[in-house]
Simulated scan of single mutants.
Amino acid sequence: MGLHYVYIIYSESFDRFYVGETVDVAGRIRQHNTGFYEGSSTKYANDWSLYLSIRCENRIQALKLERFIKQMKSRKFINKLKEDSELVNSLLKRFSE
């Protein structure tokens, strides 16, 4: 299993963040902006841009980190992740196998 990324995108028109995981961040953002995911909350906007990308060791770590960030349900927490690389590193350690 190769590298995976947890990505956080932001839509100015929708004023929302979205958290996901992928092996191809740029490709995934393109998909969100073209309505590829019909059932997703991202379908309501087409101006999603990358806010933060976090490199993970594998998909399992990425899924654990993605779930944790989503459970926080907090803009403050997402902003803190962008500002504080030590917080990101400690979470990556916590969710490593």
Rank of each mutant, 00 (worst) to 15 (best):
M1R: 04
L3P: 07
Y5L: 01
Y7W: 07
Y7H: 00
Y7V: 00
I9G: 10
I9Q: 10
Y10T: 00
Y10I: 01
Y10N: 06
S11D: 12
E12Y: 14
F14T: 03
F14I: 12
F14A: 14
D15P: 01
R16P: 00
Y18T: 00
V19D: 03
V19S: 06
E21G: 01
V23E: 12
V23Q: 13
V23H: 01
V25E: 09
R28V: 01
I29G: 08
I29M: 07
R30E: 15
R30M: 13
H32Q: 09
N33S: 11
T34C: 15
F36N: 07
G39F: 04
S40T: 00
T42F: 03
T42R: 02
Y44A: 12
A45G: 07
N46V: 00
N46D: 13
N46S: 14
S49Y: 09
L52V: 06
L52E: 12
S53K: 08
I54Y: 01
I54P: 00
E57H: 08
R59T: 12
R59K: 15
I60V: 15
L63A: 14
L63P: 06
K64I: 07
L65D: 06
E66D: 09
R67V: 09
R67F: 11
F68A: 09
F68E: 14
F68T: 03
K70R: 14
S74P: 03
S74D: 12
S74N: 09
L81D: 08
K82P: 01
E83Y: 04
E83L: 08
D84Y: 11
S85H: 11
N89C: 02
S90D: 14
E97T: 10
